[in-house]
């Protein structure tokens, strides 16, 4: 048992317990904002987890992962707008649309390598983005309001915020478990082998292109599902949810938390999004003794701190937070 109690595992366990208890805290204090924030964190963590499968384990740096959030989201939004409220129709379509898009994009982009791959995935995401902007019937640039969350059979009620939160948590944990199973299967080993040396994997007989494509589609489907959740949470879809900076944020979450680690993307998503909320306060706190009342103005410019922070993580913390926690074990 001793090898199991590592700093990393303690942090992950504490984080999971905390996430499970957020609604309890919210029920006591009535702090609705915290619930909204953490629901969002869970959903984006799910998207980041799916990205980790291709980016961390597969070495496929997709710069267009937010497109699936948009596709999943718009599947919900468009059906809701057209009067089809049943989740049993909306969700399978969201999944199928994401899978189809991932299949098409993957089939084309996996023919390329390196920077070409990064940029072609970005370009396809831009394609979907502009498609969303051009959807005049569904709000175009301004987006589309969703008046009713997806309807399921009775005990399941997504309009109940606490229940919705737990559904997000369950789906996130299922995704993490699923990806953990995939990565440790023969299929997953072949994917990781192809990351290290694609040619050698081909030489020993693995059809790596098909393996990587399957991997790409699985990641797209999970992210599309996260998009369906996001649309239900915000009750709104717009092209902004697939803006290229969102894809960048997802990459940041994965790298910040720790690439190719089971819980890394979750840690990264929590860290980044909590940081985005608290950084303005932090700046104000630090700056007040020096500049007085101007500190609250300085706090508006929190991104000037966040940007260089990414650079520092890249330069000095290659394994992300997960890597830092693991290196503590050796000391």
């Amino acid at each position: 048992m001793k090898g199991f109690v590592t700093p990393r595992n303690v942090v992950v366990a504490a984080l999971l317990i905390f996430l499970a208890l957020v609604p309890v805290y919210v029920a006591i204090t009535g702090d609705g904002f915290l619930m909204t924030l953490f629901t969002r964190i869970l959903i984006l963590a799910m998207a980041a987890t799916s990205l980790n499968l291709i980016l961390g384990y597969g070495g496929m740096v997709s710069f267009g992962h937010a497109a699936y959030l948009g596709i999943g989201g718009y599947a919900i939004g468009i059906f809701a707008y057209e009067g089809v409220g049943s989740g049993f129709i909306q969700w399978p379509v969201a999944i199928a649309a994401s899978a189809l898009f991932a299949l098409g994009v993957g089939a084309l982009s996996l023919r390329t390598r390196g920077l070409y791959f990064i940029m072609i995935t970005l370009a396809f995401a831009q394609l979907v983005y502009y498609f969303g902007v051009g959807l005049d019937r569904y709000g175009g640039d301004d987006g589309l309001q969703i008046y009713q969350r997806s309807q399921f059979i009775d005990p399941i009620n997504l309009s109940n915020r606490t229940q919705f939160y737990y559904w997000c948590l369950v789906l996130l944990l299922v995704s993490i478990y699923l990806i953990w199973r995939i990565v440790n299967s023969r299929f997953g080993m072949a994917i990781q082998g192809a990351r290290s040396n694609d040619r050698r994997m081909q030489a020993i007989g693995f059809p790596t292109y098909r393996y990587r494509l399957a991997c790409f589609v699985i990641a797209g489907v999970i992210c599309g599902l996260a998009g369906a959740l996001l649309a239900n949470q915000t009750e709104f879809v717009s092209p902004a949810m697939m803006h290229w900076t969102r894809s960048g944020d997802l990459i940041v979450m994965v790298v910040l938390g720790g690439m190719a680690s089971t819980f890394g993307p979750l840690i990264g998503a929590v860290t980044l999004l909590v940081l985005e909320e608290t950084l303005p306060l932090l700046i104000e706190l630090v700056a007040t003794p020096f500049v007085g009342a101007a500190a609250s103005r300085a706090a508006e410019y929190w991104q000037i701190v966040l940007g260089p922070l990414f650079l520092l993580v890249v330069l000095f913390a290659r394994g992300g937070i997960n890597g830092l926690l693991e290196s503590m074990r050796r000391d």
């Binding site: 740096v61 960048g248 990459i251 966040l306 940007g307 922070l309 990414f310 650079l311 993580v313 890249v314």
Partner: peptide, 9 residues
């Protein structure tokens, strides 16, 4: 990509 993405912000 990540480092220069930070620089954009």
């Amino acid at each position: 990509v990540l480092g220069t993405f930070g620089l954009i912000l």
